[in-house]
């Protein structure tokens, strides 16, 4: 195996790790913003925000890492996906701006009206960010028209029933992560309500996973080739089976008052499995249906420099990020606010 062949695979692995880290970490704190739509009490909202206030910055940093990694190691993907999905990407960035500043501004707001406005920014920003992220995913899966390594499609190619459906799925999925996070990190009535939300959201999420999974192969038949060919099916069969197993575990733990962390782990497991399944389908494309990993990648000198840094620094980053979570461990009650 030549370095030209191997390096892009390693880089793709790292980019996939980054995206997964982003989805799972920012997923629950975007989910908390989405749940502002169900939780109206101002005390409860303060508690909800306080559970993520010390860590949200770090969670969002994975998104910047994902962008910069694509830029550095898959510049062709970076330079075609972003112009193709221009309106979605811009909308996501603006949504993240609103919900990011709302974290700080809502505690400094003077008067109930300004407070209400920033709460709404937090809710709308989080929901729109989740929606656009799902739609970006959907638009990527359905394929992007390319000519000469440049985007060759129209302004609204990304807007289809499938991409909208993916957007809604991610909103529901993030809300589920948020609800499970609250089950873990809060107590009392808020926690009980979070359990109720989580049950409904989990049922919806599972339904949406099934629909998206069946819908995806109809978009590009190529996606099916790892799923319906014997014996390759043996390698991929564990994905749906594990989703079902986690569902059983989820329902047992969400109904068990003594179980706090398990529902979150199950929900994260679903995200991991969906992401894996998606990776299997898309492989080896990075911009379906025309650009694969190798066509998209930067020269070996860039990949090596990038990978060395990633290999050395990522464990350190994960280490002190975990430390930061550990410092702020434990239940957050109405007593403990960080603002």
């Amino acid at each position: 195996m030549t370095p030209e062949h191997l390096l892009p695979i390693l880089s793709a692995g790292f980019v996939a790790f980054t995206v997964l880290a982003y989805i799972t970490l920012d997923g629950f704190d975007l989910g908390i913003g989405i749940l502002f739509g169900l939780e109206r009490g101002s005390q409860d909202r303060d508690v909800m925000v306080s559970t993520v206030a010390p860590v949200w910055d770090g969670n969002e940093t994975w998104l910047i890492l994902g962008g910069s990694a694509l830029y550095g190691v898959f510049p062709v993907a970076y330079g075609t996906i972003l112009p193709a999905l221009y309106p979605l990407v811009i909308a996501m960035l603006l949504a993240l701006i609103f919900r990011g500043v709302a974290f700080e501004f809502r505690f400094r707001a003077e008067g109930p009206r300004s407070r209400f406005a920033w709460d709404m920014s937090f809710l709308a920003g989080s929901t729109l960010a989740a929606m656009t992220q799902g739609m970006i995913l959907g638009a990527l899966i359905q394929g992007i028209r390319i000519r000469d390594n440049q985007y060759a499609g129209g302004w609204f190619d990304w807007l289809t029933g499938f991409s909208v459906f993916c957007g809604l799925s991610v909103v529901v999925g993030y809300a589920l992560l948020g609800a499970c996070w609250l089950v873990w990190r809060t107590e009392g009535e808020l926690q009980s309500r979070a359990r109720r939300h989580a049950r409904v959201l989990a049922a919806m999420t599972l339904g949406l996973i099934v629909v998206v999974s069946l819908w995806t192969p109809t978009l590009q038949l190529h996606y099916l080739r790892h799923w319906n060919v014997w014996p390759r099916i043996l390698y991929v069969a564990p994905v749906p089976i594990l989703v079902a197993a986690l569902a059983a575990l989820f329902w047992r733990s969400i109904n068990d008052e003594r179980s706090h962390l398990m529902p979150l782990l199950c929900a994260l497991g679903w995200f991991f499995l969906c992401f894996t399944g998606l990776g299997i389908s898309l492989w080896p494309w990075i911009v379906p249906p025309s650009i694969d990993l190798w066509q998209a990648s930067s020269p070996p000198a860039s990949q090596v420099f990038f990978l060395v840094g990633a290999a050395v620094l990522t464990p350190i980053v994960v280490g002190y990020s975990a430390y930061s979570y550990w410092v702020f461990r434990g239940k957050i009650g109405k007593e403990t606010h960080y603002h």
């Binding site: 550095g72 860039s302 840094g309």
Partner: peptide, 12 residues
């Protein structure tokens, strides 16, 4: 991107 992208990643 092959020159500037990795530097941005190192920054992150």
């Amino acid at each position: 991107g092959p020159v500037l992208g990795p530097m941005l990643s190192y920054e992150v």
